[in-house]
């Protein structure tokens, strides 16, 4: 290959385009390779039967919460949050978070129950904190009393029908339909994220059982009025009325005043 040919190739009008294409492929491919490797590594960690909660924590939580759960800039300290907070956050799929955002969202659970229990057990050894109640202790409450307590303490954010609602800056109170009683209890005791704490000294354990009974009653009994349009209140209902009811009235009015053909 002569020297002149070489220079011609490099100075070809399309050379820069070719370089760009090659660069994009290389960087994109490298990114895919690295992230692919990362997900593969993560899945092997979670798939392995690990009984040691500390090891699980170190592998899955420590990057944000610190190796000893002391907290970092990315995540709060978990010393003293207790086993119940772990059960709630990991057991509803909120932790580990999929990305930073206004709040951690409910998603498919990432761990098996023995793994969650192992992590909860390790976090509980750090400092005393709320423990996971037995299933039986959450059964058999009084839905009527629960409804009154719910209206006073919970309905302002979660909506009187438990349908959830918006908070500030993209945060929201989730809907409370078909939630495991343990997680309802855990949310009240631990006050996850921006939810205030409702400890047993505020709402007693019996009253919490009543609130759970009310939410279960809502799950099992349909809306009396038929289609509830999400039970979100005047916004969704108003939208429906404006579009369909007023639309229908306009159509009827046009038909009434039109000449018969």
């Amino acid at each position: 290959m002569s020297r002149s040919e070489n220079r011609r190739g490099r100075r070809h009008p399309l050379a820069s385009v070719a370089l760009l294409v090659v660069g994009l492929f290389v960087s994109g491919g490298a990114y895919a390779a690295f992230t692919g490797a990362a997900t593969a590594e993560e899945s092997t960690v979670t798939a392995v039967e690990v009984t040691d909660g500390k090891a699980l924590f170190a592998a899955n939580c420590a990057s944000c919460h610190g190796l000893n759960a002391e907290g970092t800039k990315a995540g709060p300290s978990l010393i003293g949050v207790g086993a119940l907070a772990v059960e709630f956050q990991v057991g509803t799929g909120r932790m580990p978070m999929s990305g930073s955002g206004p709040q951690a969202e409910k998603k498919p659970v990432q761990f098996t129950q023995p793994e969650i229990d192992a992590m909860a057990a390790w976090v509980a050894t750090l400092a005393p904190g709320p423990t996971v109640p037995t299933e039986a202790s959450l059964q058999g409450g009084d839905p009527a009393n629960g409804a009154e307590l719910f209206r006073i303490n919970c309905a302002m954010c979660h909506n009187v029908a438990g349908a959830g609602g918006a908070l500030t800056e993209g945060k929201y109170a989730p809907n409370l339909h078909n939630i495991d009683p343990v997680h309802i209890y855990a949310a009240m005791v631990t006050g996850p994220q921006n939810m205030p704490v409702f400890s047993d000294m505020n709402i007693t354990a019996d009253e919490k059982r009543d609130i759970i009974a009310y939410l279960k009653y809502l799950d099992e009994n349909p809306s009396v009025g038929g289609l509830d349009l999400g039970a979100l209140g005047p916004v969704s209902e108003g939208l429906f009325v404006w579009i369909f009811a007023l639309g229908g009235l306009v159509a009827i009015t046009i038909w009434l005043t039109a000449k018969s053909n």
């Binding site: 302002m156 609602g165 908070l167 800056e169």
Partner: peptide
């Protein structure tokens, strides 16, 4: 209106 939508970490109270 009753203002009770309290966010315990941002300490914001929201009127619905």
């Amino acid at each position: 209106c009753p203002v009770a939508l309290y966010e315990q970490q941002t300490h914001h109270l929201l009127c619905p």
